[in-house]
Write a protein that binds this DNA or RNA. Structure first.
Length: 804
DNA sequence: TTAACGAGAACG
DNA sequence: GTTCTCGTTAAA
């Protein structure tokens, strides 16, 4: 019986987005399994590519000559049956390539690295041999490219004088360390000691160490060094047969130096206990159910998570806990590590690729039962999931912006269904979609309406900045906010200041002629970066110097506009002498670990004000923070996005929740130019339900989510007319297959019509039920392949979250 | 006549 | 993504 394998190859194009069949050489038949990575020859030149085995079956027909699997990259399947199936589903639903889906499920190091080499197999002209090959019999493709001899080499290849060789390298490597163990008996060492010179102190020391070890213990080179045994001593000992050296696989543990004090479960209050028991019931019964856990800030959602996870672990199953990247703070990790110790694996962007791989292996080997991580952790290779939790479920970062454009919430529910386990969506401000599903009983609603220990919600004051300006205060700080900050400094309390960056940036404008410095490639103003003293385009990365005079009218009154964190910090220092400010933004947190360091400093009260962007709004718990200020509450309200009110409400509610988490009462001051806006007013009143009602009403009137689903098609081309013509054509192609219930918006130019010197258009399809739509889009994509190859980019976003 | 270029198809 | 084929065009 011969076996063949269905393999998805790493060639991300539409035409190759399907399984290819390969024969399996006898030596692999016993080992190969679906889910393994393999190397296969592909295409005319049989170049080597990475592939994923998705199925193994018996050879049926002999009609077609099959190529054979070249080698195995894994000794065990890296993708489970479940993940293989999920990848297939995701590829279809998000209009992505199946390989891309599998690659996103795995740590980055497991993606193959390709290299091309030219190897000599016969005599070649002398000059080429010496100048290009320099006496070697193999050079890299890049070397040949640099020397401009590619065409000559290709000719030589046809004459079988040289060979072009493809290499697939696996970057995934477990870190290994060198260790030493004794090779001889206690008595033997005694004898050796007699034999060595009295002044060979190092050797004597090494003998002592070896003698003190039994054959089960071993020491690493680093440990031996600490004892005073150098590597040269070890080497000579090895030569004399005193010891043995071997390699041991280790994990790069980013939390190695940290000690986590174990914590015990806290007593749950009535609401928490109710939520817990509802969830516990489904855990016990192995039932799939989606819960929406709506709990006000500070209501103890995390404790409910922790206790349900405990139940799952005790049942012998794994738990998956998703947290938005910016909320994945050391504080958050600590709570899980303290409760579950080594059973926790943490995956976040701060880890190096190697560290991520190690955490992944720990999960794969079932050494870690609890996975805490950001979006991509939803693919964690847990084999038996007992619960999936998505904290802050309303966060838009759960949707991946690149292909595959998946939403972690959808993936979580898919996996929950597969594993027959509950999925918990937690938030103080659930997305309208989730809240609406709870109303329709698609999700089960669980509410925590009180803060733990019955701490009151903080008082929220909304300051009208228009009045402030009228009364002659030009500052970015209202009098109330400044007084509040002063008071906290005097009382030895702390404040958090949020600068809402969304829809906001600092740009350069000429005060005489109104000229704004724009990017030469994109129709967008460039942003000022004080740290590098340059202007940057946030879309294409174009960078140039800060203009000293206006390029248009030569005026020197070209000035910076807008408010950045640096500017706020500077002004604050001028206004408040005693202000000790910690600033957190992309500039100060770029370096690894700086996040944590800054938070630690604030926690240790080395500063009285924490100033930052969105990243300070989440999951932080500082008991001495009694004032939270929002400098610009409404910069996002004006954006052309139907979710902008929702996002503003969520942000204000989240950040308000940072105040008064200790025994002292908290205050929140929101500065706004639209103080009467309902998003701001309901946030002030901590009134989610009224906001929900009002917003649902508006969404209903304008036919938006959650009443309608959305699909976004974007088309871009170098030529504006071509792009416009094509998107109209595509829209006309799809329209006939839609029911009369569907609404087509556009096509329209995107609000930033040009980036990277390309023109972008989009069309939105709003629909309730369109069973043909997905299929039709797939058809569109396959029928437009030729145009896509010629520079017409088409991108489909299923349930998009942004429209800008 | 031959080399060069571009589009199209196929990849097991 | 890469390679090969085929048809056409440009250069010698």
């Amino acid at each position: 019986m011969t076996l063949i394998a269905d393999i998805i190859v790493d060639v991300p194009t539409l035409q190759t987005n399907r399984p290819y069949t390969y024969s399996i050489p006898d030596i692999f038949t016993d080992i190969i399994q679906p889910g393994m990575r393999v190397v296969v020859p592909f295409g005319r030149g049989s170049r080597k590519v990475q592939g994923f085995v998705i199925d193994i079956k018996e050879h049926e027909t002999t009609e077609m000559e099959l190529k054979a699997v070249e080698s195995l990259m894994d000794s065990y399947p890296v993708l489970t049956k479940e993940l293989l199936k999920l990848g297939e589903f995701l590829a279809y639903q998000t209009f992505s390539f199946q390989v891309k889906c599998y690659q996103t499920m795995l740590p980055a190091v497991m993606r193959a690295k390709y290299s091309k080499k030219v190897r000599l197999i016969d005599e070649i002209p002398e000059n080429l041999y010496w100048e290009v090959f320099k006496g070697k019999d193999e050079i890299s493709w890049e070397e040949a490219e640099n020397k401009n001899v590619l065409s000559q080499l290709i000719k030589l290849e046809k004459q079988d004088k040289v060979e072009i060789d493809y290499d697939v390298k696996d970057k995934a490597a477990a870190k290994k360390i060198k260790k030493v163990k004794p090779a001889l008996s206690f008595e033997a060492y005694e004898e050796i000691r007699e034999g060595i010179r009295t002044n060979a102190k190092r050797q004597k020391l090494f003998i002592d160490v070896l003698q003190s070890m039994d054959d089960k213990t071993s020491l690493s080179y680093a440990e031996l060094r600490e004892l005073g045994v150098t590597s040269s001593t070890i080497r000579s000992g090895l030569e004399k047969g005193w010891c043995e050296v071997f390699y041991e696989e280790i994990y790069r543990d980013p939390f190695a130096s940290r000690i986590f004090e174990p914590t015990t479960p806290l007593t749950l209050n009535k609401d928490q206990a109710h939520a817990f028991s509802e969830i516990y019931q489904t855990i016990k019964d192995d039932q799939h159910n989606v819960f929406l856990l709506k709990g006000v800030t500070g209501s103890g959602k995390t404790e409910v998570y922790l206790q349900t996870i405990r139940e799952v672990i005790d049942k012998g199953e794994g738990a998956l806990m998703l947290v938005p990247e910016i909320a994945l703070t050391p504080q958050m990790v600590q709570r899980f590590k303290s409760r579950f110790g080594d059973e926790v694996a943490v995956l976040h962007s701060g880890l190096s690729k190697g560290e991520k791989y190690d955490e992944w292996r720990k999960i794969e080997k079932e050494e870690a039962k609890v996975v805490v991580g950001a979006r991509s952790s939803v693919f964690a290779p847990l084999k038996n999931i007992g619960i999936i939790i998505i904290d802050e479920e309303h966060e838009t970062s759960y949707k991946q912006e690149e292909f595959p454009k998946y939403h972690a919430r959808d993936v979580a529910i898919w996996r929950g269904n597969y594993h027959n386990c509950p999925v918990i969506l937690g938030s103080a401000t659930p997305s309208l979609e989730s809240r609406a599903r709870a109303t329709k009983n698609v999700y089960t609603l669980l509410e925590l309406n009180n803060r733990v220990n019955d701490y009151p919600m903080p008082d929220v004051d909304v300051i009208d900045m228009r009045e402030e300006a009228k009364s002659g205060n030009p500052s970015i700080f209202s009098k109330a906010l400044l007084d509040g900050l002063k008071k906290r400094i005097d009382q030895g309390e702390q404040s958090v200041l949020l600068l809402n960056r969304r829809g906001f940036s600092s740009f350069v404008m000429c005060r005489d002629c109104g000229y704004v410095l724009e990017c030469p490639n994109c129709d967008i103003s460039q942003t000022l970066h004080m740290d590098t003293k340059t202007m940057k385009c946030h879309y294409c990365g174009h960078e140039e110097g800060i203009p000293k005079k206006c390029p248009k009218c030569e005026s020197r009154s070209i000035r910076y506009y807008g408010t950045g964190t640096q500017k706020v910090e500077k002004e604050l220092k001028e206004l408040l002498d005693d202000a000790e400010i910690i600033r957190m933004d992309v500039d100060t947190t770029r370096k690894k670990g700086s996040h944590e360091r800054l938070f630690k400093q604030f926690e240790n009260k080395q500063a009285n004000i924490l100033l930052g962007t969105q990243m300070i709004a989440k999951g932080l718990d500082f008991p001495d923070v009694t004032l939270v200020g929002v400098i610009n509450a409404d910069t996002a309200l004006g954006l052309p996005d139907f979710r902008s009110a929702e996002k503003t409400f969520q942000l204000l509610t989240q950040v308000s929740g940072r105040s008064g988490r200790g025994e002292k009462e908290g205050q929140v001051i929101i500065q706004s130019y639209n103080p009467e806006h309902y998003a701001i007013q309901y946030a002030k009143q901590h009134d989610y339900d009224s906001f929900y009602k009002k917003e649902m009403n508006l969404r209903h009137l304008s036919d938006y989510s959650p009443y309608y689903y959305l699909l976004k098609i974007t088309v871009s081309h170098e030529n504006e007319m071509t792009a416009a013509k094509k998107i109209r054509q595509y829209t006309d192609y799809i329209r006939p297959s839609l029911s009369d219930k569907a609404i087509v918006l556009g096509p329209t130019p995107k609000s930033i019509a040009r980036t990277h010197n390309r023109y972008h258009f989009q069309v939105l399809i709003k629909y309730k039920r369109e069973k043909n739509l997905t299929e039709k889009i797939h058809q569109l994509l396959s029928e437009t392949q030729k145009e896509q190859a010629k520079g017409m980019y088409i991108s489909i976003d299923y349930q998009p979250l942004d429209f800008i």
